[in-house]
Design a protein around this nucleic acid. Sequence first.
DNA 1: TTCCAGGAGAGAG
DNA 2: CTCTCTCATGGA
Length: 280
Amino acid sequence: MTDFDLKHTLECGQSFRWQRFNGWYYGVVGGRLLKIRQEDGTLIIESSADESDAELETFLHHYLDLNRDLPTILRQVDIDDYIHLAIETFWGMRVLNQELWECLASFILSQNNNVPRIKGIIRILSARFGESLTLDDQVDYSFPPPEVLAEAGVDALFDCRMGYRAPYLWEAAASITAGKFDMDNLKCLPYVEAKQELIQFKGIGEKVADCVCLFSLGHIEALPIDVWIKRIVEQIYLKRQATIREIREFAQSYFGEYLGYAQQYLFHYARVIGFNTPGR
DNA sequence: TTCCAGGAGAGAG
DNA sequence: CTCTCTCATGGA
């Protein structure tokens, strides 16, 4: 395994489920609690589930997006000094393929919210409605499926401190439980159609739909435009205020088909390092 | 105290 | 179509 960095991949704000402890990353994926550590080119993994190494490896290869040719992608978007620094700094960071329902639900909760608090809400939600999983002395909880949250009711969700987003999450859970929305079909649709379907949910707009397309459905051309991406494009590239549409049109023509990957490097770099363009 | 966060819906114009 | 106001929460 090459061109992969576990730390950057799990800490760049695309997933809300991983936490570092004693040099390991613990997280729940696919109903199992995992602990992972990277030593140079190899990953050391333990699972709470009773499964074969081959099974786990296949799952993780897809989840961590290891099947994609990262150098080719990064070479293609490495076209100016600022993103070059981002790529250099976070080389090996990959865009995850997260589970659809958890990703959709998580990003409904993400609107007008910050990463630490999103993580907190998801932790409460999982602890209250998920199933307990144990690995070593660590305990965590699976993400509750739609039918469990639909059954729980809006008030119970509101008690998880998610504020006005509670009815959005509940309606999505109820609609999926009632069979009004086909999650498997969504995985088969091309980017533009998948995004269009996602926007039908109350509480999912263009930005959250793009997050689901990028972080779960494998559409690496998707561009979620949040306050950070808006600031980056305005300050670093356009050097003026711009509308969401202008930002999208610029970014698509500038970065091309791997826009989603470019976006994640820019997002993480701006948040962690800042907006200073390399003096030259 | 006010501002901000991986925004979106409702209403006005 | 675009612009503005509002929404619950907690940390800075």
